[in-house]
């Protein structure tokens, strides 16, 4: 009958009215009592004791808790992670960047690391105002020194501040993404939850033991 298709359509929308939503809420969301107590890791009664205001809000479903969207460990985030002691200053990243936004200035280093002379980095500027986060610099890095970051909250008021300088890279929290780093994926590492302090953890080889080092660099020379 004419109009039957329309009525079927009305019921499809009605089904979705009572069904679940697919909205991802960020940076916080409002929840009821059960979820709020789960968030504060308490039972509902002790929630009232410790957070009375949140407790009362939770009764009407208005308690505010932090919420973060699910994120893959491979997510190519904004702030780059750079491990200085892995970097030799070869500037492969700068060379392979499709947009040429990485600027590296080096001078021959004082310190001699075991695997040959490395360069000291004077300037390591990444202009993420023009970066398209393709990750080819990370792919090109032969020593696993440069990594994609895992965040996306780098909103900045001035255009100049979009350039990541070498100091910023040095001091930044190291939460590298596992993009193009299969060795980190194997250890089921989550950039959201874990930080990486030791630069050996991000390399694609095992950290050599002292005996191996002596054998390689002292005995065999």
């Amino acid at each position: 009958m004419f109009g039957f298709g329309l009525i079927k359509g009305l019921f499809v929308t009605l089904k979705n009215l009572v069904g679940p939503t697919f909205t991802v809420q960020y940076p916080n969301k409002r929840v009821g009592l059960i979820k709020a107590s789960k968030y504060y890791n308490k039972n509902p009664f002790s929630l009232f004791k410790s957070h009375p205001l949140e407790g009362f809000k939770a009764i009407v479903g208005q308690a505010v808790i932090k919420e973060f969207p699910d994120q893959s460990p491979r997510f190519r985030g904004q702030e780059f992670n750079w491990f200085e002691d892995r970097c030799t200053g070869c500037a492969s990243c700068a060379k392979y960047c499709p947009l040429g936004i990485i600027e590296i200035v080096t001078h021959p280093g004082e310190k001699n690391i075991q695997e040959g002379t490395s360069y000291d980095i004077d300037v390591f500027d990444i202009d993420i105002g023009r970066c398209m986060f393709c990750g080819i610099c990370v792919e090109a890095c032969p020593f696993d020194a440069l990594h994609m970051g895992s965040g996306f909250e780098r909103a900045i008021e001035k255009r100049e501040n979009l350039v990541i300088s070498v100091d910023e890279l040095r001091s930044a929290e190291k939460r590298p993404s596992t993009w193009f780093r299969p060795q980190m994926e194997k250890s089921s590492y989550e950039p959201r939850n874990e930080k990486i302090e030791d630069s050996h953890d991000v390399g694609r080889h095992e950290k050599p033991s002292k005996e191996e080092l002596t054998k390689r660099w002292v005995n065999e020379r």
């Binding site: 939503t21 809420q25 409002r30 208005q62």
Partner: peptide
């Protein structure tokens, strides 16, 4: 709000309760 729910999303929920 209602159109949002019909479309399986939440609708405006930031400015004030609900």
């Amino acid at each position: 709000r209602l159109v949002g729910r019909f479309q399986a999303r939440l609708g405006p929920n930031r400015w004030g309760p609900w």
